[in-house]
Design a binder for these strands. Structure first.
Length: 831
RNA sequence: GCCUCUGUGGCGGAAUUGGUAGACGCUGUGGAUUUAAAAUCCAUUGUCCCUAGGACGUGCGGGUUCGAGUCCCGCCGGAGGUACCA
């Protein structure tokens, strides 16, 4: 331990203030129906992406976003808002379960210990959370409502006419059968090839596959019966209703790309010599004349029907080869085209030509219809395939100019296309679709890349589905709401069974609900809890509803949401979907959960690399706190640069802000009640203005610069008026709450800074009697002159032209023009 | 390949949105204090010519303008996302 003397005793006072805030519940937020609630105040709901409490504890990325929201929350509170700024735990998840498999320790025990550690670490940073609102996704009181929401999804369908979800009871009244209703539920059972991970013993959502593969897990396609959520019904609304949100354009873009809307047509190709019809989706119906062959995905159901006897053997062999290929082999690693002819032919509906039908793995069963019309002249993939297998290539688009038409995928003028010849691509598309619709050979069609959400997992540590199965009929039904929450049975062996029904299969007593019914053994994915936690914070203890109606109508949705980009398409899309369903069903008053979204940038290691154990560049917040204090950590994380930006860590930088705080600490020695200083008053009030503007626009780095300048002015002065310094401490309080409170208390200040009103700017103090004017000659700075603030344009011009340096630069030249920007500058144009 | 973001001193970054480029902080250099160090304080720190002062300077090349880091056109580099999506 170094003998380094601490420049101020943060180790003594930081914990003191934290204890006081906790004991007095300084940051408790009263909501509707609670003591002390003042409904006349405007609300401001600030949300952090709640952490998964891992065993590793906080890393420096957490306090970045959390400090930003903390500053905003404290500021808004001082500005007279009812601020909701809560924290909680996304506590279901695989690591705890895997730890349990290894050690036999129950995931609940591990999770609790991790949560306690996270809470301790966050509290040591002095965040102004209302800890009475803490939520934990694994609490029975929380699980109950996650399951309740699932039942709402289960009991709803998407009404196409109104474009919204409605209860299935509407359909029952219309006389729909049970089977028909099961077909349209928003939560439904579906048997389809899914992403099954043998190494983890669970299935995964499409969205998760890459992430886990990157971590070394194996994932393969396998047909299984799974719970799905019909998010695809909301594809269009998820695009449209994204538009007005105050989100980073990049995130909106990611969501739009993920949903992947494309417009085109569905076209029917008759199979020659039989009744079968192959439907294809195309975004380029204008190129239909150029469709010289077709390709079916190897898994396409028509393959076995159309294949000729001569080709059967080759087709079967190819299908088998594809089935055993991993996604990686089929995708990234193998861009080489492969395929086999089926021997069958289809009829191009517009040209009447017979075209061969092939199967190839470059066509995916999961998108569109699983079949394509191949236009090798104007599609790169088809072009490559046609060259390899020597299939005909027919030009149908003229790119114009000298451009090569082979493989040209852009827009141009239709050629060799009968009635489309001479039309531009746009017009040709429209005309072809009209023709197809008139002839009954196709329709206008919009396609989305978005798939329905695979919602079941074969895990122990997740919410069990509140679903019962009839042992006789195999029909499913929702568990009665009174029986929620349905918790997992106590178990000691969490190992995957290899059975795709998951580890709960072993809890035979638990499964057996009654003579007639047994329980569903799947559990929900971790996303379930995080889909609606922001709602629960508003009313965390409500046992009657997931959120009280009065409470919901006050807090509504989140005003500011801060978190990392990694959730751009997962959590942020899922939560929007659930919110919309709950809104459709009348449980929520808003359409979107998060009005404004800000992504904090990644903090890199001191070496500019991403922090990682293997590189040894990880910074532990606990170490920074013990050496420099929580205020220094908070301040440094905000001073590093713009919140959204990726930026490297620097211990020297931490020392820099620590020095600033030490200077503030020393200012108190020269505070005096007697002195008055116009100069310092002006600086202080300028600082109020600058800090305020910076916070409002989330530019915390410049707010800190402004405060540094102000404190430099105090340090240069012989004495600092007490009232001004208190204002300064108020400005500093959201950033460095401990030190500011401590200094304020040492100066004998009454009450808490955090509970004072934000200081008002005295604009009169900011008015200058004399202002500096920049004088340029031909756009180059030549002089600075002081003029009276109320000086006229003419006076300013005259003074500028009289300046010595201006005279020397205009000598021998003719002044052509003088531009005067009042209060700013004069530019003399001379040549 | 496509999409989004981004490019300013030795470093992190400012710049009132078209008007003093480099605020604030870090680093470096010189000095004060000290037996010495730490801490603290003062000066200096874009490059070049160096004397007041001047020339150059915001990835590169053009353009618009009295005036461009900021707007327009064309390149180049970096980061992230995504990709047989028909």
């Amino acid at each position: 331990m170094s003998e380094k003397k601490k420049s101020f005793p943060f180790d003594e006072f930081e914990s003191k203030w934290q204890e006081l805030w906790a004991a007095e519940k300084t940051f408790r937020t009263a909501g509707p129906g609670e003591d002390g609630f003042d409904g006349s105040k405007p609300k401001y709901y600030i949300l952090d992406m709640f952490p998964y409490p891992s065993g590793a504890g906080l890393h420096v990325g957490h306090p970045e976003g959390y400090t930003a929201t903390d500053i905003m929350g404290r500021y808004k509170r001082m500005k007279g808002f009812n601020v909701l700024h809560p924290m909680g735990w996304d506590a279901f998840g695989l690591p705890a379960e895997q730890y349990a498999i290894k050690t036999g320790q129950h995931p609940r025990v591990t999770t609790e210990a991790n949560v306690d550690n996270f809470r301790r670490q966050l509290q040591a940073l002095g965040f102004a959370y209302d800890w009475d609102r803490e939520v934990n996704t694994t609490d029975p009181g929380y699980v109950k409502w996650t399951q309740w929401i699932f039942i709402q999804l289960y009991n709803s369908y998407f009404c196409e006419e109104e474009g919204k979800a409605k209860p299935v009871s509407v359909l029952e009244e219309k006389g729909w059968s049970r089977e028909e209703i099961d077909e349209v539920r928003l939560a439904f059972i579906h048997e389809a090839p899914v992403n099954w991970s043998p190494s983890m013993g669970t299935v995964l959502a499409n969205e998760e596959v890459e992430e886990w593969k990157a971590k070394g897990e194996t994932v393969e396609r396998r047909p299984l019966r799974q719970w799905m959520l019909r998010i695809t019904k909301y594809a269009q609304r998820l695009i449209d209703e994204l538009e007005p949100l105050d989100w980073p354009e990049s995130i909106k873009m990611l969501q739009r790309n993920w949903i992947g809307r494309s417009e085109g047509a569905e076209v029917e190709f008759a199979v020659a010599g039989c009744e079968d019809v192959i439907r294809v989706f195309t975004t380029r119906p204008d190129t239909l004349f150029g469709a010289t062959y077709m390709v079916l995905a190897p898994e396409h159901p028509l393959v076995d029907e159309v294949v000729t006897d001569e080709q059967r053997e080759a087709v079967v062999a190819y299908k088998e080869a594809c089935a055993t290929k991993s996604d990686l082999e089929r995708g990234d690693l193998n861009k080489d085209k492969s395929g086999v002819a089926t021997g069958a032919f289809a009829v191009n509906p517009v040209s009447g030509e017979e075209v061969p039908i092939w199967i190839a793995d470059y066509v995916m069963m999961g998108y569109g219809t699983g079949a394509i019309m191949a236009v090798p002249a104007h599609d790169e993939r088809d072009f490559e395939f046609a060259k390899k297998f020597e299939l005909p290539i027919l030009q149908v688009v003229d790119p114009g100019g000298d451009e090569e038409w082979q493989g040209f995928t852009g827009e141009g003028v239709a050629v060799n296309s009968g009635f489309l010849d001479g039309l531009e691509t746009g017009g040709a598309k429209a005309k072809m679709i009209d023709w197809l619709e008139k002839e009954g050979k196709g329709t206008r069609q919009v396609n989305y890349k978005l798939r329905d959400w695979l919602f079941s997992r074969q895990r122990y540590w997740g919410e069990p589905f509140p679903i019962l199965w009839n042992k006789e009929t195999g029909e499913h039904a929702a568990l009665p709401e009174e029986e929620l929450p349905l918790l997992q049975p106590e178990m000691e062996d969490f190992k995957p069974t290899g059975d795709p029904r998951g580890p709960l299969l072993k809890a035979t007593e638990w499964i057996n609900y009654s003579g007639e019914f047994e329980r569903e053994t799947n559990t929900m994915p971790q996303w379930a809890g995080s889909c609606w936690y922001y709602l629960r914070y508003c009313d965390p203890k409500n046992a009657e509803r997931f959120i009280g109606e009065e409470v919901e109508s006050y807090w509504k949705n989140v005003d500011l949401y801060v978190g990392g980009t990694e959730h751009a398409v997962l959590h942020l899309l899922y939560a929007r979907f659930w919110h919309k369903v709950l809104n459709d069903l009348g449980h929520l008053s808003t359409k979107e959960p998060f009005e404004k979204l800000v992504n904090q940038g990644l903090i890199l290691g001191e070496d500019g690399q991403k922090m990682s154990k293997s590189l040894g560049n990880v910074v532990n917040p606990d170490d920074v706190v013990s050496e420099y204090g929580a205020d220094s950590l908070r301040l440094y994380e905000m001073f590093m640069g713009p919140l959204e930006q990726v930026k490297p860590w620097s211990m020297k930088g931490v020392e820099g802000v620590h020095r600033f705080l030490a200077k503030v600490w020393r200012v108190k020695e020269k505070v005096s009640g007697e002195v008055s200083s116009d100069e310092l008053a002006k600086v202080t009030h300028q600082t109020i203005k600058r800090v305020q503007e910076s916070i409002e626009s989330l530019r915390f780095n410049t707010a800190i610069s402004a405060m540094m300048e102000c404190s430099n002015a105090y340090n240069a002065a012989d004495a600092v008026p007490r009232d001004l310094f208190v204002i300064f401490l108020q400005l500093l309080n959201p950033f460095a709450p401990h030190l500011s409170e401590e200094v304020h208390a040492l100066l004998g200040g009454e009450g808490l800074l955090s509970e004072m009103n934000w200081p008002l700017v005295n604009e009169e103090l900011l008015v200058e009697s004399e202002i500096q004017i920049i004088v340029q000659v031909n756009g180059k700075l030549r002089a600075r002159i002081m003029v009276a603030a109320e000086a006229s344009k003419e006076e300013v011009e005259e003074l500028a032209l009289a300046d010595e340096n201006v005279v020397s630069f205009t000598e021998g030249k003719t002044v052509r023009k003088v531009i005067v920007v009042p209060g700013k500058l004069v530019n003399v144009v001379a040549n």
